[in-house]
Design a protein around this nucleic acid. Sequence first.
DNA 1: CGGAATATTAGACCGATCGTCTACAAAATC
DNA 2: GATTTTGTAGACGATCGGTCTAATATTCCG
Lengths: 205, 205
Amino acid sequence: MRRKPGRPPRAEGARDTRGALLRAGLEVLTEKGFAASGLDELLRRVGVPKGSFYYYFDSKEAFGAALIERYAAYFARKLDRHFLDEALSPLARLQAFVDDACAGMARHAFRRGCLVGNLGQEIAALPEAYRESLRAVLADWESRLAACLEAAKEAGELAAGADCTRLAAYFWTGWEGAVLRAKLEGNERALRLFAEGFVATLPRR
Amino acid sequence: MRRKPGRPPRAEGARDTRGALLRAGLEVLTEKGFAASGLDELLRRVGVPKGSFYYYFDSKEAFGAALIERYAAYFARKLDRHFLDEALSPLARLQAFVDDACAGMARHAFRRGCLVGNLGQEIAALPEAYRESLRAVLADWESRLAACLEAAKEAGELAAGADCTRLAAYFWTGWEGAVLRAKLEGNERALRLFAEGFVATLPRR
DNA sequence: CGGAATATTAGACCGATCGTCTACAAAATC
DNA sequence: GATTTTGTAGACGATCGGTCTAATATTCCG
């Protein structure tokens, strides 16, 4: 019993309980996936009682859906930051994303992976509604990368006949595998290996 | 209460309890992963009481380890069947494996994936001993594929300068991603896409 | 053929943890 | 200062992984 019940101050040194839950949820779920992540652990971590959780979210399923949404937004921003960076050539932008991702995984000692990959893997045991959400997220990433590859085409870094949409789908498919492998091996080797292989085999002209 | 206790006949119409547990375990874990798979469900499915489970296996962890071993053996046989098939050219053998895998996933309506991929994804929440096992399995697949690619070199299907080990690592990394994606999408598109992309970008000479 | 030893099953039981829910207190509003 | 809103506290029943004792079939040995 650490605190009396009731509403804590919110106006000033406010504590964004919902936000804290989402942040911690992302940390836990990108590490262990959905099924293996217990609410109790999450709540202990954030220092919030169960009642609060169920005030902000209808269920664990709803919480997961919110996490997917938040992760998609976070990742879309990251992709835009790199893929739309006019200071770099299109292929250099892709490389910058890869470098960023490697640094990100290293920062968490290769324990955390990709939320989409984690949930996709256990999709059979997840709410059916997640499937479409995850698919949509991947489709979104695909179109962002395809646009970057189109830019590469115009910059003469990629053959005019290249199928950018197909290449983008190929990239994200393999990339998810690389993230999984990097987690398993505990190093960035797989990420580098896949990225280099992908770029190396791009049709130049 | 369906049956009186005691040892059932084993000599004739014998029921291989341990084997049945392993078989069902493989089905469940390739679908839902480790954490999401409850012992109770498994036991209900096989029609075996808990006592038997803990007679054959020390713990869920030991059970999982046995599953990894069994899956590795099963998969190694499958790889040998294809990669050592002298009737086909080396690259045709790889294609035969891909076709086989597509058919296999389709047979289970794309619900079951790869045990190594599933467990690898949730490695952070798994017994640490699994990590090395899974790594070793992947390394084994890698060397089998590398040998097949070496054969392709000798057959003139692959450039003499190609780094077969590296290519093999690249393949399995991306392949795991493709399996994950095929599960998520519920079709073989990702498998085909990755396999075609891989073969297409192989250095021919 | 009989009795002891062994192999295997039956399922109650335990502490921990799962996700849900009801009761209530503080802050905000009027 | 009463009511409404916002949020917290923690009890709850179900189920989890795991252990344990009891019971019985089979095998072994004489």
